[in-house]
């Protein structure tokens, strides 16, 4: 009896130790996130004001704002989404609705996964080789957008596929039983139900596109360009690239540090808003779909 009591005590002690280690490690993870966020916020908040967001950079980027970089990033987000959303959603629909469990489905999924695993710098190399040099777009918004769009395509495909998978099959069957065609079923029944999750995925991919630096290094990003682009064949500045250059290779690294903090905070703020928006949408539509 005494021994078994000891055994129990021993194993409960072990459990306690293990669980506390897990708690501490999780706390470290969360704290490091909070540390990064609060450090950037603390140093960047004083820089951000209306002028910072709406003025051109001045004096070798040691003064002035980041307006062209913000606009550039918005252009790139829009450009890449024009490319990635239709193709991504279409191919998600095709994979989930039209292919049976065949070799083709497995093949496409494998290819999508592989594309997702390719490092962003390789996309940069590819974009430079194909869009900038071979197709002759030069360093331009269109070259950068296509590169970014290609990179984010797997995310859109996967989320669309997951969203469609979550729609219960009985809805499809009911619609087909009522005489609707397959396309009508997809358009009128499946897509509306999957819509919130698809939108969430798209919003998250916007977050991803807006922060990527490596693919735009050689396809679009300009070091210092205090004017707005006039066509899709122009170069633009972009927020992530701007942060990179002013924190490592600006003319006066120390003097532009505050601007770097401000840019970092704007980037984080953008990602934060995107995440919150996605979560809110998920929750809002989630309730609605359930109620229906």
């Amino acid at each position: 009896m005494i021994i078994s009591k000891k055994v129990i005590q021993n194993k409960n002690l072990k459990e306690k130790i293990a669980f506390n280690i897990f708690r501490i490690f999780s706390a470290i993870v969360v704290l490091s996130l909070i540390a990064i966020l609060s450090f950037i916020t603390y140093n960047g908040i004083s820089v951000i004001n209306w002028n910072f967001l709406t003025q051109m950079p001045e004096d070798g980027m040691t003064k002035g704002g980041i307006y062209p970089a913000i606009i550039g990033t918005l252009y790139l987000v829009a450009g890449s989404m024009i490319f990635a959303i239709p193709i991504g959603v279409f191919s998600g629909i095709y994979i989930n609705e039209y292919t049976k469990d065949s070799w083709y489905k497995r093949f496409i999924k494998l290819m999508t996964n592989n594309l997702a695993g390719i490092p962003s710098i390789v996309f940069g190399l590819f974009g430079m080789s194909l869009f900038v040099n071979t197709l002759g777009f030069g360093d331009s918004i269109i070259a950068g957008s296509l590169t970014l769009g290609l990179m984010v395509l797997p995310v859109v495909i996967r989320t669309t596929e997951e969203a469609l998978k979550a729609v219960d099959n009985s809805f499809r069957l009911a619609s087909l039983a009522l005489g609707a065609t397959k396309l009508q079923t997809i358009r009128k029944v499946v897509l509306p139900m999957a819509f919130p999750n698809i939108i969430t995925g798209i919003i998250l991919s916007i977050g991803r596109v807006s922060g990527e630096t490596a693919p735009i290094l050689f396809t679009v990003a300009a070091y210092f360009l205090p004017k707005l682009p006039s066509s899709i064949f122009d170069q633009v500045m972009a927020l992530p690239y701007h942060l990179y250059v002013i924190s490592t290779s600006g003319t006066n690294v120390e003097a532009s540090r505050p601007i770097a903090y401000g840019t970092a905070l704007v980037l984080i703020g953008f990602v934060l808003i995107v995440n919150l928006l996605a979560n809110a949408l998920r929750r809002y539509f989630g309730k609605k779909v359930k109620m229906n």
């Binding site: 993870v29 969360v30 996130l33 990064i36 450090f39 950037i40 998250l204 977050g207 991803r208 807006s210 922060g211 990527e212 630096t213 490596a214 992530p240 690239y241 942060l243 990179y244 924190s247 490592t248 540090r257 770097a260 970092a264 980037l267 984080i268 990602v271 934060l272 995107v274 995440n275 979560n279």
Partner: peptide, 21 residues
């Protein structure tokens, strides 16, 4: 959601944090 946020922060921001801290 915190972990998701961690995934969403751009790599260049991590690099910047690494550089200054």
């Amino acid at each position: 959601p915190l972990i998701e946020l961690l995934a969403g922060i751009p790599s260049v921001v991590y690099g910047f944090f690494g550089l200054v801290v």
